[in-house]
């Protein structure tokens, strides 16, 4: 009985469906429906705030009114499943690919994926990156057999749109705003260096190299794949850059 009542109340809070609950509640004065609407407004507003905090660039691109409508549709279709909200909104990128009113902005779902990757990286487990000195101690003949473990915050992203550039031009107070070539595609990664989320667009050779290492290939195999993409692939500089970015948390032979 209590369970049924609670299911009815959740329906009020999430979608303002009051009919089932009305016979069970009363107001000391005035309209009972209006009092129930307070619970719906609280729930909708607080979940919308969670989505706003997770997707600031999506909101900036579509504007507040559109975003609130999107949030309302998303919340009705995907109510939270976990009683902690730092993971709420992970289904929004996929939802956006099917969201009819957003069809005129084909890059929006990828922008949401980038923003979710940033949030995910922000909350990822703490882990010290590889100390470059340790790597320097590996005997030269074993270098090409090295395998790396990626930092828990590390995420690769591939897009048919220039999402890293679009993200950058949508940061507040940017002056002057550079031109965006929407015909460009951009791949890249998001990670966290101690407490700061970082992101970089990557050329295709480096992307192949990182994807291979992430999939557990050896440094030798990854480098061969990168050079197949672009024979000018510069292993030394690329490795140095990624050690500085804390991309790897461990290595073994």
């Amino acid at each position: 009985m209590l369970h049924d009542l609670q299911r009815d109340f959740a329906g009020v809070a999430l979608t303002n469906s009051v009919a089932a609950l009305l016979p069970h509640v009363s107001a000391a004065r005035g309209s009972t429906e209006r009092r129930l609407s307070v619970y719906h407004a609280n729930t909708l507003n607080s979940l919308t705030d969670v989505l706003s905090a997770a997707y600031p660039v999506v909101q900036r691109i579509v504007g507040d009114r559109f975003f609130y409508g999107l949030a309302k549709a998303f919340i009705a279709a995907h109510p939270p499943r976990q009683p902690a909200l730092f993971r709420y909104g992970d289904a929004l990128p996929e939802f956006l690919t099917q969201f009819e009113p957003a069809k005129t902005l084909p890059y929006l779902a990828d922008m949401a994926r980038l923003e979710w990757a940033r949030l995910d990286a922000y909350f990822a487990a703490d882990c010290d990156p590889i100390d470059p000195q340790q790597l320097a101690n590996v005997p030269p003949e074993q270098i090409s057999n090295l395998k790396f473990t990626m930092h828990p915050a590390y995420r690769l992203l591939e897009s048919n749109f220039p999402i890293f550039t679009i993200w950058a031009v949508n940061q507040p107070d940017l002056d002057p705003v550079p031109e965006v070539d929407f015909d460009q595609s951009e791949d890249g990664y998001v990670s966290r260096l101690t407490h700061t989320v970082i992101q970089r667009a990557l050329p295709s050779d480096t992307l192949s190299w990182l994807r291979a290492l992430k999939d557990g290939e050896t440094l030798g195999t990854a480098t061969a794949l990168a050079m197949a993409c672009d024979e000018a692939f510069d292993l030394q500089n690329t490795l140095r850059q990624h050690l500085a970015d804390g991309t790897f948390s461990n290595f073994h032979v």
Binding site: M1, Q6, A10, L14, Y39, T43, Y88
Partner: peptide, 25 residues
């Protein structure tokens, strides 16, 4: 209060009926 039912989490502190059943829960 309650906020979880059928594994859906409602991000609000929803009220309880003050019954013996609710008290036991």
């Amino acid at each position: 209060s309650f906020s979880v039912v059928d594994d859906i989490y409602v991000n609000d502190l929803l009220p309880l009926p003050y019954t013996e059943e609710a008290l036991q829960a």
